[in-house]
Design a protein around this nucleic acid. Sequence first.
DNA 1: CACTGGAATGTAAACGTTTACAATTATAGA
DNA 2: TCTATAATTGTAAACGTTTACATTCCAGTG
Lengths: 371, 371
Amino acid sequence: MATIRDVAKLANVSVATVSRVLNGSSKVSAQAREAVLKAQRELDFHLNANARTLARKDSEIIGVTVSDLSDPYFGSMVRACENAAHKLGCSLLVCQGLHEEQREIVAIENLLSHHCRGMIVHALTVPDERLSDYMRRVPSMVLINREIPGFEDRCVNIDNEHGEYLAVSQLIAAGHRDIAYVGSRHSILDAKERLAGYQRALKSHNLPLKPSLVVADEPLLDGGVRAAKELISRGVSFTAVAVYNDTMAAGLISVLNEKGISVPDDVSVVGFDDIMLARCLNPPLSTITNPVEEMGEAAVRLSSSLYHKDRQAAALPEFEVRFVSRKSIAPPPAKSWTDQLKERSSGKAGSHESKVSAAFRRAQLEAKQGK
Amino acid sequence: MATIRDVAKLANVSVATVSRVLNGSSKVSAQAREAVLKAQRELDFHLNANARTLARKDSEIIGVTVSDLSDPYFGSMVRACENAAHKLGCSLLVCQGLHEEQREIVAIENLLSHHCRGMIVHALTVPDERLSDYMRRVPSMVLINREIPGFEDRCVNIDNEHGEYLAVSQLIAAGHRDIAYVGSRHSILDAKERLAGYQRALKSHNLPLKPSLVVADEPLLDGGVRAAKELISRGVSFTAVAVYNDTMAAGLISVLNEKGISVPDDVSVVGFDDIMLARCLNPPLSTITNPVEEMGEAAVRLSSSLYHKDRQAAALPEFEVRFVSRKSIAPPPAKSWTDQLKERSSGKAGSHESKVSAAFRRAQLEAKQGK
DNA sequence: CACTGGAATGTAAACGTTTACAATTATAGA
DNA sequence: TCTATAATTGTAAACGTTTACATTCCAGTG
C-alpha cells in the first residue's frame, strides 16, 4: 500500500503538503495541489483512517450495538444511525448482542477498544449496574430503550407506558372488555412500561386485571406464535389482544388465521412499533408508531456532541407516539369465537349473516374514529 | 485515556510486557501478568484498536456496503456477515448506498480508507468498469449480486434465472397461462436474470411473451403497489403474477386485497427471497428461498481469506434456491377477476359458490404438489 | 566457581498520519 | 537594493501499539 510519503516523493513535496492537500487546508499553492492529486491518482493512494485517527485523536467511527440486525425494528434504527453518522462524516461500526449477556458485553467492550466518536448501545440482558459502570467511564455512551438512574439525559426512550395505554384504550373504546396482553419475556424498560400501560388502561376504565389473560414470550415471530397458542389453550375467553410489538402480533394473527378465528371480526388485535410489516398484514394492523428512526438519529447526534463536549447540543427531543388506525380492530362480536368454534365443530352452517353484521359494526366504529 | 505506557508504569513493567499480557503471549511470568491485569483494571484501560491495526498491519474490521439496512433482505445479510465476522474476531463497518451512485461510491471509498481486512460490496448503480477497477486494486474485495467478467470467483451469487424459472413453472403447473411479471427497475444481475427465468419458463411451455404483462418498478413495498396499479390499469387480463421479490409482492397483494381481488382464488402470486414477511402475509406467500445468510457468511470468509492470501480457502460453495409452497398459488379461476369485477359492479350477488369451488381447486392443487 | 542456555524482560524502531513550529520563498513598499 | 511581511513549504515530534533484538537473570552443569 502506498503511503503519504510515497505520494510526497512522487509529487516532489513534503508529507505536510500532501496532508494539507488531502485535508483541504487552504495553505497550499495550486501547483503543489495539482502535483499531489496527480501523484495520488497514479499511486491509487487512500489515506489510512487508522493512522489519521491516531494522530488526530478524533475518531470518525460511531459504534452501535443492537440485538439483531435482521429484526426490522433494529433495521430501521441502524439505517437511521448510518444516515446520521454519514452526515457527520462518520462510519458505523455495528455489533450484535443476540439476546445473550456475554455477547452483549463483548460487543460493548469491542466498541470501547475502537475508541469511537460515539457509542450507542441497545442492551437487553446486561444488568443496570454494569451498564451504569460503562456510562460513568465513557461519557459519550448513549443508551436506547433503557433508563439508568443518574443518566436520564443519555437515555433515548419513548413513552412506552403511554403508547400501550393508547393502544388498549382504543380497544376499550371499540367496546372490548376481555382484553389479553402478549408481552415480551425480557425484563427491560419497554417491556415493563408497556405492560404497565396495559394495566393502567384497564384500571382507569374499571376493567378487571386477569392474570390468565397475560402471557409473555420472546419478542419475535415465533414468540407471537407460541404466545397465541398458550393463550388459546388456557380456554379463557377474550375478544381483543394488545401485543408487545408488531412482529409478535404477526405471529399471533397467523395462529388465529389458522384456527379460523377471524381478525378483526372475532378478535381485534393491536400491535406496537408500526414496522413495515404492519401495513402488509391482512387485515393491516392497527398499531402504535414508534419513531425509531428519529431515535437513532438523535442518539447519534447526542453521542457525537457529548464526545466533543458540546453542552448545549446535548438535549434530547420529545418523541411522539401515536395510534395508527388500520383494519385489525372492530367492535367485539355478538358471539365469542369460543362459542363460534363450538358451533362450527358441531356442524352448523357458515355464518354469512354474522359477516355482514361484522362489516356493519366495523363501519360504525370507523365513523366513530373519524376516518 | 490511559495508554499502555500508563499501565506499564503502574504495574512496574515495560510496555512490551503489557502488550504480551494483553495479547496472550506465553513469555511472561505469572507475577507480571497479575500486576498488569491489576493495573489495567485500575486504569480501566482498553487497547487502542487503531494503534494496534497500524502497528500490526492487519485490520480487524470487515467492511460491508448494502443498499438499505432497513430492507429485510439486507438485514438478514448483514446479520450473517456480523456473525461471521465475529467468529473471525472482527467487527463490521457498515455503509449504505441508498440506491444512489454517488453514495455507493462514497461508501466504497470510505471502506477503502479504513484498509479493512475484508470488503463486501453490494452496489446497484456503480457501473461495471468502475467496479472492475476497484476489484483490480483491492484483492480482498468481494461482490454480492453482481458478476463482473474476470472476477467470477469473487462474486457471490445465486442462480436467479433458475429460481425465477422454478417460480413461474409452478404457476404454469397450476394451470396458469396468463402470467404477469413484476420486475425491478434496476438493471443489475439479479433483475436481468430473474426476468430471463420468467421468459424461459413461458417459452419452454410454449406460452406467448406479452410485453403488456411485464412491468418494473423500485424493488420496495411502494414499487409493488405502483406496479400492481399499473398492471391493473392496462386492462390486460392475467390470472397469476410472478414478482421480483417478496416485498414487492406484499405491495402488490395489498392492492389486490383493496380492489377485492382475492389471492389466490382470483390471482395467484409467487415471490422471491423468502423473507420473514412471506410467512406473515395472508395468504402466506409461496416464494423462492434465497440463502442470503449463507451468502453473507461465505462472502465474509472469502474476503478475509483473500486478504491473507489463502489460496485454498477461496472457493465459493453452490447456493441452493428452491420453491417454497405456501398458500398464494391456486389453479386459475373459471371466471377471470376482470369479469367478476364487472359482474359485481353490475350488482349481482356475492359469489359464495365460487369461493367453495375455489377451495376445492386449491385442495386439488395441494394434493398434486404433494403437501 | 565459571559457563551455558533458556526464560523473562526491556529497548527502541517501526506503522502512517497530523500539526506545531521553523524555514524558505515571494511580494510589496521604501 | 533592501526590508518587512505574508504566503507557502518543510521538519520532526507526537499519536498508542507491536515486535525484533538486546539484555538480564537464574538454574543447572562441568
